[in-house]
Simulated assay, not measured.
Amino acid sequence: MTDAEWHLMEPLLPPSACTLAAGGHPEKWPCREIVDGLRYLVDNGIKWRSMPAGYPP
């Protein structure tokens, strides 16, 4: 995902739980990497476990 695409998509996603008043654990993986992984999966139509090693589990 390019920086321009991310700047368009980021405001559409919910905020991290750790930034809300109710609190929460910090996320282990950046939201951008998760979205990239989901887009890769949808684009290529592969099984989740067949994804390249660079994406979050």
Rank of each mutant, 00 (worst) to 15 (best):
V42P: 01
W6R: 13
S16W: 07
V42L: 12
M51V: 08
V42D: 05
N44Y: 12
S16K: 14
D36E: 14
S50F: 02
I46S: 11
W29G: 00
C18L: 03
P11M: 06
C31G: 04
V42H: 04
P15Q: 15
G37M: 01
H25M: 03
H25E: 08
D3I: 06
P56F: 04
E27T: 11
M9V: 08
A53N: 04
P26Y: 01
G24E: 05
P15N: 14
G23E: 06
W6N: 10
P30F: 08
S16A: 15
P30T: 12
D43G: 10
R49F: 06
N44R: 12
P14C: 13
N44I: 09
P11A: 14
H7V: 06
H25T: 09
E10G: 09
L38S: 00
I46D: 01
Y40W: 14
E33H: 03
E33N: 06
Y55Q: 02
V42W: 01
A53I: 11
P14L: 08
P26L: 06
L13K: 10
A17W: 09
G24F: 00
G24R: 01
D43C: 08
W29I: 07
P57C: 03
E10F: 07
D36L: 04
I34P: 00
Y55R: 05
A53P: 00
A17G: 06
H7W: 12
L20R: 15
P30E: 12
L13A: 09
P57L: 02
G54K: 10
L20F: 14
C18R: 10
L38V: 10
S16M: 12
H7I: 01
P14Y: 03
R49W: 04
L20H: 10
